[in-house]
């Protein structure tokens, strides 16, 4: 559907397909709990086993997120994080890693006021590969999705248990890179879907698209990651990582010597689970 050339995301999924395993997609919020610690986590993610990184753009009102990611967004904002700092993090990351895709994930308003066209230029120049903007539906593709594609960025959409076959066509129309299947109706960090349901749903999606399908929401443990990785092309873990940041902090919310390590060792465990299946 899109006029995109092969992107970093396409290349990564193609390589993993050859390896015969699912991608580990890791979500952290940019700037959580502070810029320095967050950069250390970001830069350490590929070595710990993250195949694709979703970097959250903090927003004051994350309506689709549960308590863990809400709190992480607020920590970042409280520490003075901005959209420009998020892009700076990506730019610095790209100096040492030319291959690991980064997808920015968040809500529309901080992009809209940037504003859109400038944001897309800056994001592409910083080395961002794709965007997930939770509250911009396909009905508004002309505002952000199409201009993003015009700059070589993948615009990744969510499909959910409420997306029927008719709606799926609309969702897929300008989607590229991968399709993100939200395995539960609910907010991030809530309950987990049962693997049989996920299997059925992934099969349904795969009949409708040749894009890789990554599954997220509710994946917390290596065991769950392994089970989902058996049917999906990617497994997204977010709240569990963000929760690991939270539990490593001091009482007044400051990073400790443990913060980056706590997240990265969790990622190592998840990665190992996907490599041994």
């Amino acid at each position: 559907m899109t006029s995109l050339k092969e992107t970093r995301i396409d290349r990564r999924f193609a390589a993993l397909k050859k390896e015969g395993r699912a991608a580990l997609v890791c979500f952290i919020t940019a700037g959580d709990p502070d810029l320095e610690t967050s950069s250390a986590i970001l830069n350490g993610l590929p070595k710990a086993g993250a195949d694709i990184i979703e970097l959250g753009m903090p927003f004051s009102d994350p309506m689709a997120d549960g308590p863990a990611i809400q709190a992480s967004s607020l920590r970042a904002l409280k520490a003075g994080h901005t959209m420009r700092k998020t892009l700076d993090m990506v730019r610095a990351f790209r100096k040492t890693d030319a291959d690991t895709p980064i997808v920015l994930m968040g809500y529309y308003n901080p992009i809209y006021v940037y504003p859109n066209e400038t944001f897309l230029d800056d994001a592409a120049a910083a080395g961002v590969d794709g965007l997930i903007v939770v509250d911009v539906p396909p009905e508004a593709d002309d505002e952000l999705c199409l201009p993003a594609i015009g700059r070589g960025l993948n615009f990744i959409r969510l499909a959910t248990p409420t997306t029927d076959d008719k709606r799926l066509k609309t969702v897929l129309k300008n989607t590229s890179g991968f399709l993100y299947y939200v395995s539960i109706t609910g907010i991030t960090g809530a309950g987990s879907a049962n693997p049989e349901d996920v299997q059925l749903q992934v099969a349904r999606l795969k009949r409708a698209t040749t894009l890789p399908v990554a599954v997220g929401f509710g994946v917390k443990t290596p065991e769950q990651a392994r089970a989902i990785g058996e049917t999906a092309d990617g497994v997204v873990v977010g709240s569990a990582l963000v929760r690991a940041i939270e539990t490593s902090l001091t009482q007044d919310g400051r990073a400790t010597g443990n913060t980056a390590g706590a997240v990265l060792s969790l990622v190592e465990g998840l990665s190992a689970a996907l490599r041994t299946s």
């Binding site: 689709a64 911009v136 969510l158 248990p161 029927d164």
Partner: peptide, 12 residues
């Protein structure tokens, strides 16, 4: 105006 909501809510 418009309909700026998460995909889960769009069908609703």
């Amino acid at each position: 105006g418009g309909r700026f909501v998460a995909e889960t809510l769009m069908p609703l």
